[in-house]
Design a binder for these strands. Sequence first.
DNA 1: CGTCAATATTGAAACGTTTCAATCGGAATG
DNA 2: CATTCCGATTGAAACGTTTCAATATTGACG
Lengths: 335, 335
Amino acid sequence: MAKVSMRDVASRAGVSVGTVSHVVNGSSKVSEATMLKVNDAIEELGFVRNAAARQLRSGRSSSLGLVVLDASNPFFASVAHGALEACDVAGLSLLLGDSGTDEARESKYLDLFAEQRVNGLLVTPSGADLSKLESIASKGTPVMLVDRAPGDFALSSVTVDNVAGGRMALDHLIAGGSSAPIFVGGPLSLPQVADRYAGARDRAREAGIELPLFESSEMTILAGRDVGERIVSLPEAQRPDAVFCANDLLAVGVMQAVIMFTELRIPDDLAIIGYDDIDYALSTIVPLTSVRQPAGLLGRTAVETLLAENESSATAHCDQMFTPELVIRESTRPV
Amino acid sequence: MAKVSMRDVASRAGVSVGTVSHVVNGSSKVSEATMLKVNDAIEELGFVRNAAARQLRSGRSSSLGLVVLDASNPFFASVAHGALEACDVAGLSLLLGDSGTDEARESKYLDLFAEQRVNGLLVTPSGADLSKLESIASKGTPVMLVDRAPGDFALSSVTVDNVAGGRMALDHLIAGGSSAPIFVGGPLSLPQVADRYAGARDRAREAGIELPLFESSEMTILAGRDVGERIVSLPEAQRPDAVFCANDLLAVGVMQAVIMFTELRIPDDLAIIGYDDIDYALSTIVPLTSVRQPAGLLGRTAVETLLAENESSATAHCDQMFTPELVIRESTRPV
DNA sequence: CGTCAATATTGAAACGTTTCAATCGGAATG
DNA sequence: CATTCCGATTGAAACGTTTCAATATTGACG
């Protein structure tokens, strides 16, 4: 066990502790010669700086906290991945928390991270009440909401524009000639789903068509397959010519039902468009057109914005909204 | 910004700093009355203990480091999830690192975590040379390899028995009546793939049959589809009656090729079995039989073992190997 | 050779805890 | 009333840095 402190390095190199600190941090001019001596001593002794001590003395911490709803969900995994990239270039460590959409656990992580005096907090909150986060932010720890709008709370956020995404999807379907599209997604209590539907319905109305809602119980492949079975069993006159699904998993489920139970051709008889553009989207039987959400970018931007806010110690809150991007593949008709 | 220290709490409560510490940590008997006073003061002032200071003084850290190959990969996301659960019960924080299978980045995280004086390190190493990890471990920081055997290096590990998993898969195929199975997977330089193949081939030989290898370039759906196309274009006499894929993504790809290009029925004409049992496995068109790897358990066990080793400060290294589990669905013939 | 400025180096005081020997105040005992 | 003992409390010394005013060293210049 190496318990080597700057004191040891200093005495080995024949200089003072202050000088060692300067060498290690480049905080002040040090002559070529002493620098060499000190670096040699560090090498020989295997000195490793003590983050706790430096943080205590300097007051600056070198870590960020990230609390997600479910670390094993690919979307959040990508968010974490992106956040990590940004931390990397800033030389920061990332503390990970997983609330499992449980407010108590979320709160526990918040407390834990407060003790660590993290430089900032990235949180996808579980509940509707963000007052604890607000109070943390007002005490000086920058807080950034991820994939969640702040509503009335005074917090910064990084989100993706779900209304625009919904509109985008319908735009594409209509341009491809669809005159009887439907929307699949749910529950509508999820703000993300509600917004996507709202955007899509608006665009449909502009074209003078309705956008019937086929609500799903959750956002999984199986739920999508259930809805798909409902769709294919409709009388032919009521059958849609296009389906917009609130995420890719639903779209995959719908596609499976269509292929298993009908002879309908995709996209000729029925176009399908998903949302998220997960990795599996381009690997479905008929490659899936999808509205891409930049999960990694979300994480990276959250970190960068937080750091920038920290820098400028601006008190103003900043809401950053990304515009999703349409990725056209073979499950929809070309325009 | 609340900068409240124990000193502030102490003076507010009219006691000494030491007493506050005892109240906060329950480290020594404190009378009911003072305890109340102190807790009141803490509440009023909004005191939060400073992890850096306590770590510096006590020498004990309260965090673990986890370095994975790719944080956005669902397998590692689950590992992280499991590790987090175990940290949770132990009251530890988890620092996350993502090497992207780059040894330099891995090394950078190792250094970063060394500065943080983490209580232990969980690592899925990128390269073959584990001497840096070995040296870290010998300096006193417990290191646990995750999903990777230590080979000749003196390190503890938590893995899943890939040989047994491969054997298990073939066992099931043969029991279902297969007489001409093949193996799909690659590159064989991945120890995981090589072991699965070895186990499967052994079992096949015991039954007096060969297990031809269809090597894939990587372990993705697309690579699987490529191999699938090769398989379906074989002359009928050479066509296998069962396919064992080194992971589920490959299996999905093979399945897609079979459904797209042939009239073969799964499992009657061709059985397919995958590996990992990812969430999507039960959502494929024909639900996929798979050899389940307990990713979450892997992470959780890694943390628990590491903590236990830490406790006992045992110098002996411990290799823990899980046995995978066969999950039978409709893509294989029942026995 | 003396002086001055510039540049390198030093020393010591924090930072907020934990920890432990020392002290205090009572209650119980003789 | 003096003593002993015991639990509750205190005070101060670390822990390993950073930081900054103060000092030492150097080189250039007159």
